[in-house]
Amino acid sequence: MDASLKLKYLECLNRMQGKDYLAAIISFGAAPTIKGRKPSSLIAFSGRRKNLFALWHCYKQEICLEFNLEYCELKDGAEIAIVLFYRRKMLERYLGNSRNLDFLNSLGYQEAVTLDEKLQLLKSRFALTCTHEVGIFLGFPVEDVKGFIENKGKNYLLSRYWKVYRNRERAELLFRIYDEATLDAASAVIRYSEGYNSMRD
Rank of each mutant, 00 (worst) to 15 (best):
M1N: 09
L5A: 02
K6F: 14
L7M: 06
Y9E: 03
R15M: 11
R15I: 05
Q17V: 08
Q17P: 00
G18A: 07
L22Y: 07
A30S: 13
A30C: 11
A31P: 12
P32D: 01
T33L: 10
I34P: 03
K38A: 05
K38I: 03
S40Y: 09
L42G: 12
I43F: 10
A44T: 15
F45S: 01
G47Q: 09
K50D: 00
K50P: 00
L52K: 15
Y59K: 09
Q61V: 05
I63P: 12
N68P: 00
E70S: 11
Y71I: 03
E73D: 13
E73H: 09
K75F: 07
A78F: 10
A81P: 06
I82N: 02
F85S: 03
Y86I: 00
K89E: 15
K89I: 03
K89A: 12
M90P: 05
L91S: 01
E92N: 07
Y94L: 08
L95Q: 07
S98V: 04
N105L: 06
S106K: 11
S106R: 12
Y109V: 06
A112I: 08
T114M: 12
L115M: 06
E117Q: 15
E117A: 14
L119K: 08
L128P: 03
L128Y: 09
C130M: 10
G135P: 01
I136W: 00
I149M: 08
G153R: 06
G153S: 07
L157F: 12
S159F: 09
Y161C: 01
K163A: 06
K163V: 11
Y165V: 05
N167Y: 13
E169R: 13
E169Y: 04
E169D: 14
R170S: 13
L173F: 07
L183D: 09
D184Q: 13
A185F: 05
A185G: 03
A188G: 07
I190G: 08
R191S: 15
Y192G: 05
S193N: 06
E194W: 02
M199I: 05
R200Q: 14
D201F: 07
